[in-house]
């Protein structure tokens, strides 16, 4: 009868029991994480984790909330430009900061199209960067996954997306990740062995299960965006509805122009594979050239050729592949001032 305390009066989908810690410092957090090893899971806004826990996709025994750690909630502008965002800064706070939108339009764009307003007031930038990969076979209830036969990512031996293979093809579904890579962001982690920094591009791995180059006991503390330095950026997102939906294609583009020619370019595709994908073939087509329609088109086709989305997200995968080209063109045209034609 001691369980009676759990609830009284309702009927709904619930979280499995867990122990909860809310450390007030990074040291304390690291200690708790190392004490509990693989049973522990870091949580910030919870908007990605809790639904997955309710569906028993992730079943941590211990939750370590990073909300009370002061370092994680700072926004610090460097004197010579560039900004450092604490991983626990909410998406709503990023959006409220006009200076960020001016310096890093792609970031503001991406944050503005994540889910919907309540999720944005709960979810954090760090949480978005660490968001679990998604798959139509994986993001389902326990009942559903059991009926299907569990998949490789949780409890099973095969990946139903590509049953012949040995890997998981769950999709990187962060809007922030491709943008951070395009902006050249650097991530600061702290773990039992000390601090380290890692380029956003290196933070992701092409594996639906081990999708982050971050040990479970490491904490993502902050993200540093380099000085604006002439870079212009934007983000285009494909999804069925104007709100709520995760990206099934994200195109982050940053370019730096010099006397009418593209000096540098970064094109990063999100939600078409297990990690965000930087398309250097396309960047090479742009660099050194005027962004004339044929150049843009060439880059867009290179993007489309370089990606191989699979049939495990909304929209047909071939459609997503084709849209990658369309969205890249639109993003580049948006950044080309004045627009060609």
């Amino acid at each position: 009868m001691s369980r009676r305390v759990l609830h009284d009066g309702g009927a709904m989908l619930r979280l499995p029991p867990f122990r909860y810690f809310a450390p007030r410092s990074l040291d304390e957090a690291l200690r708790i994480l190392s004490d509990h090893g693989s049973e522990a899971q870091i949580v910030a806004g919870g908007t990605d984790l809790y639904p997955k826990m309710k569906r028993r996709q992730i079943e941590p025994r211990v939750l370590v909330s990073v909300r009370r750690i002061p370092e994680l909630s700072r926004i610090v502008w460097a004197t010579h430009g560039g900004v450092t965002l604490g991983a626990g800064v909410t998406l709503a706070r990023v959006l409220a900061c006009e200076d960020l939108a001016i310096a890093y339009p792609a970031l503001a764009r991406a944050c503005a199209v994540i889910a919907h307003p309540p999720i944005r007031s709960m979810g954090t930038i760090g949480g978005n960067l660490c968001i679990d990969t998604r798959c139509t076979y994986y993001d389902q209830t326990f009942f559903w996954r059991e009926a299907l036969g569990f998949c490789l990512k949780k409890g099973g031996a095969i990946c139903p997306v590509a049953p012949g293979g040995t890997r998981c093809w769950a999709v990187s579904s962060s809007d922030g990740a491709p943008v951070m890579i395009a902006l050249g962001a650097v991530l600061h982690l702290i773990g039992p062995h000390g601090e380290r920094t890692i380029a956003a591009e290196e933070f992701y791995r092409d594996d639906g299960i081990q999708y982050l180059a971050k040990a479970p006991e490491e904490v993502l503390v902050e993200v540093t965006l380099p000085r604006e330095d002439g870079w212009k950026s934007t983000y285009w997102k494909l999804r069925r509805r104007g709100a709520i939906d995760f990206p099934v294609l994200g195109v982050a583009v940053a370019v730096r122009m010099e006397s009418g020619r593209c000096r540098d370019a970064r094109i990063v595709l999100g939600a078409v594979g297990s990690c965000p994908k930087r398309i250097r073939e396309a960047e090479n087509i742009l660099e050194g050239n005027r962004l004339e329609p044929d150049v843009i088109e060439g880059a867009a086709h290179a993007v489309s050729r370089a990606i191989r989305p699979l049939d495990n997200a909304d929209f047909l995968h071939l459609y997503r592949k084709r849209m990658a080209s369309v969205f890249t063109q639109r993003a580049l045209r948006e950044l080309t001032d004045p627009p060609p034609r």
Binding site: L6, H7, G9, G10, R14, L15, Y20
Partner: peptide, 11 residues
Amino acid sequence: VCKTLLEVLRE
């Protein structure tokens, strides 16, 4: 701790 605010408000 595993009870959500929704559950606490309603129940």
